[in-house]
Amino acid sequence: MEAVKAKNKTFKKLGFTYLETAEIVVSLNTLLANYQVFYNKLRNFHWNIEGPDFFELHEEFENEYNTVKENIDVVAERIRVFGVKSNFTFKKTLELSKIKEQEKEISALEMVREVLHDSMLDAVNASLETGDVVTENMITGFMTELEKRHWMFTSFLK
C-alpha cells in the first residue's frame, strides 16, 4: 500500500511523481557520467594529438571539451532542481558511463572516429516519457550541437 502512495505522490516543486522523478534523475546521472568520461577522453586527445592535423584537431578537441564542460554543469544543475545531489566519484562515474575510456595510443583519425562513435543522449527518452519538457529542451540543445559536430568530424574524415 505504501508503494502505491509513493508512486502517486507528486514532487512538490515540479509536479512529477517520485517514480517519474527517479526515472529522470537516473537518466540524467547516466548522461552526467557519460559527459564526464567523454570530457576526460577529449582532454587526453587534445594533449596527445600528433601528426599533420595537429593544429586543427588540437584546437577542435579543446572546443569540444569546453562545450562538454559547460554541459556537465548544466546537467548537474538540472539534477539538483529535482532535489538530488550529484555526488560522483571516479569509480561511480566509470560504472554508470556507457562511454569507455581510451587506454591505448591511437592515431589522430582514430581519435576523430572515437569522438563520432561516442553517443550519450539516451536521457531524452526519460524526459519524453515523463513529460519533462525542460529536460527535453536541454537535451535537444545538446543534440543540436552533437549533430553539427558529427557533420564536421565526418566531413573531416573524408
Rank of each mutant, 00 (worst) to 15 (best):
G83I: 14
D122K: 11
Q102W: 08
E95F: 12
L96G: 00
I106G: 12
T89H: 06
T144C: 09
K91E: 07
L116M: 08
L121R: 09
E77S: 03
V74C: 01
S97C: 15
E95K: 03
V134T: 13
N87S: 01
R78S: 04
E110G: 10
A76H: 03
M111Y: 02
I139E: 00
A123M: 07
T135V: 15
V84C: 07
S86L: 05
K91C: 13
F90H: 03
T140V: 06
V75M: 09
E136D: 15
S97A: 07
R80E: 05
V75S: 02
E101K: 02
G83A: 11
I139W: 03
T135R: 09
N71S: 08
G131K: 03
L109G: 10
E101W: 03
G141A: 09
H117P: 08
E105M: 00
E129D: 04
V124C: 07
E110P: 09
T135L: 01
M138T: 10
F90P: 04
E114A: 07
K91F: 11
R78M: 05
V81Q: 14
H117K: 08
E136Q: 06
E129S: 04
M138W: 11
K85F: 09
V134Q: 15
N137V: 05
S86N: 03
R78P: 05
K85T: 06
R80M: 09
R113D: 08
Q102N: 08
I72D: 09
L116Q: 13
V133A: 01
N125C: 04
F88E: 07
E95Q: 11
V112M: 02
V124A: 11
M143P: 01
L96W: 05
K85P: 05
N125P: 08
F142N: 05
V112E: 12
V84H: 03
G83S: 01
S127F: 12
K104N: 06
E101S: 10
L128F: 13
I106Q: 15
S97N: 05
V124F: 09
F142V: 08
I79H: 14
T144K: 12
D122M: 05
V74A: 06
K85C: 04
R78Q: 03
L128R: 11
I72A: 01
V75G: 06
E103Y: 01
N137K: 15
A108L: 00
S86I: 04
K92A: 15
L121D: 15
S107N: 14
V75F: 06
E129Y: 05
K98V: 13
D132M: 11
F82P: 07
I72F: 00
T130K: 12
M143T: 12
L96P: 04
I99H: 07
M138E: 15
D118K: 12
M111H: 05
E103P: 07
K91R: 06
A126C: 11
